[in-house]
Structure formats: C-alpha cells, structure tokens
C-alpha cells in the first residue's frame, strides 16, 4: 500500500469505481441478509423492497433438511373415474420413483416430480393451517383434512392460498397423468391419497420393518381442483 501511495500520478477513478462496486455489493448482500434472515422488525420494514430486489433471480431458501429433516416417507396413491365409472383401483405413483433411485448412482430428475408434489402439498397446507389469520378464525385448523375447506382457505393470506391451490393443481395433474398412463383413459375426476409412513424412531432403529402408516385422502376433484361427487 506504500507502493500505491508513491504512484502520485495514478488516476483516482479506478478507486472510485471500486468504491461504487462495493456500495452495490453492500446493498445487494444487505437485501440478501434480510431475505434469508428470520422475520425481524428491520426485514418487515423493508419487506417490499427486499422482495422486489431478490425475486425472482436471487430467491433462495437454505433450510436444507432444517430445522428438522424429513423423518417419514410420503407416498402418493391416485385413482380416477370417467363417466361415473371407476378406472381400476389406486395407482401407486411413488414406488416406481423409488425404484428408479434404488441402487442408482445417477438417477434422473423424474423422481422429484412426484416427491416434490406431495411434499409441497403437505407443507403448503401446513403453512396455511398454522398461519395466524387462519388460527384466529379456526382454532381447530390443525384437525382439518388434506384438502382444506373453502371457508378455511378464504381466511388465509392470499400468498399462502395461491401457493396451496397451485400445489393442489400440481398433484391433481400428476393424478390425472398417473391414471391415464395406467388405464389409457383420461379421468374426469381423481382422488389423491397421501400415505405417510413413520418408520421406527432412533431408539428402535434395529427394527427393519414397517412403522406406522397413515392415509389421508382428498375428495374427488376435477382437473381444475373443484370438488365433485362421482
């Protein structure tokens, strides 16, 4: 740095450019910090500016296996009807995906399309029934089924409601696709069953068997996610 001092004739503008670049970086990582930090008074104050700056190109979420990792298996079973007739029984969408991954060092990305769909549905539902707005009107929201009623949904914040509807749409399309490829017929209504398998907890880890299995069904739904009676 004594060197740079000696160069009295060296132009000053590279340093100005560098200082400008540092200001941009400071601003950008200031927003990044507010974006990834838990909600706090400052992040709430600048929420709209942060969203504008970060979304969509710098959106990020690093809750990788956190705060708690997944600790149960989630599977999707789907069935459909066409013209009032059921198209075979439940089709298992998840097992085929698990088989693609088993003993495969480089599986393709297809398995994500099923596992993400069910995980997204469950977490979008969770976000809604735990939101303050919903709990204020429906204290018992936690007991509601996989498919939330219209009343409960309407009580939720719009962003969460849209996110939930999108995850339902994605699962319904997955179900239509699954039934169609199994039966060859495009169903006009589908039902989705989420299977949750809570495998043995740490203290019973020597138990190689099946743990507790629970099922949760959506009503029969049309392609647009409308409830119907088949």
């Amino acid at each position: 740095m004594s060197q740079s001092r000696q160069k009295a004739g060296s132009p000053v503008w590279p340093r100005i450019a560098a200082a400008g670049a540092m200001c941009v970086l400071a601003l950008h990582f200031g927003f990044t910090f507010l974006h990834v930090a838990p909600a706090n008074p400052v992040s709430q104050q600048f929420a709209s500016a942060t969203g504008l700056w970060m979304s969509p190109f710098f959106d990020q979420n690093w809750e990788l296996f956190a705060p708690d990792p997944v600790s149960r298996d989630t599977g999707l079973l789907v069935r459909g009807t066409a013209d009032g007739k059921e198209l075979g029984g439940f089709v298992d969408l998840s097992t085929a995906m698990l088989e693609r991954k088993l003993h495969n060092l480089v599986p393709d990305n297809l398995h994500y399309t099923v596992s993400s769909a069910s995980h997204n549905l469950l977490s979008a539902r969770q976000d809604l029934i735990r939101s303050d707005a919903v709990l204020a009107e429906f204290p018992e929201a936690a007991d509601s089924g996989l498919f939330l009623d219209k009343d409960l949904l309407d009580a939720g914040p719009e962003a969460l409601r849209t996110a939930y509807k999108r995850t339902v749409d994605a699962v319904v399309q997955l179900a239509i696709d699954g039934v169609r490829s199994e039966s060859g017929v495009t169903p006009d209504a589908v039902q989705v069953r989420v299977v949750t398998h809570e495998f043995p907890r740490w203290s019973e880890r020597a138990d190689a068997g099946v743990g507790e299995v629970a099922y949760s069904d959506t009503p029969w739904l049309t392609a647009t996610g409308q409830e119907v009676t088949p």
Binding site: V70, R72, D73, L98, H111, S115, W202
Partner: peptide, 15 residues
C-alpha cells in the same frame, strides 16, 4: 440423530 432420519427416509435411501 438427524442423519439417521435422513438416511432412513426412502426418498434418500439409495443403498
């Protein structure tokens, strides 16, 4: 015990 639950989840239990 987090690693146990991750490794035992079928989605990630390749081997």
């Amino acid at each position: 015990t987090a690693l146990y639950y991750i490794l035992r989840t079928a989605d990630y239990n390749t081997w």
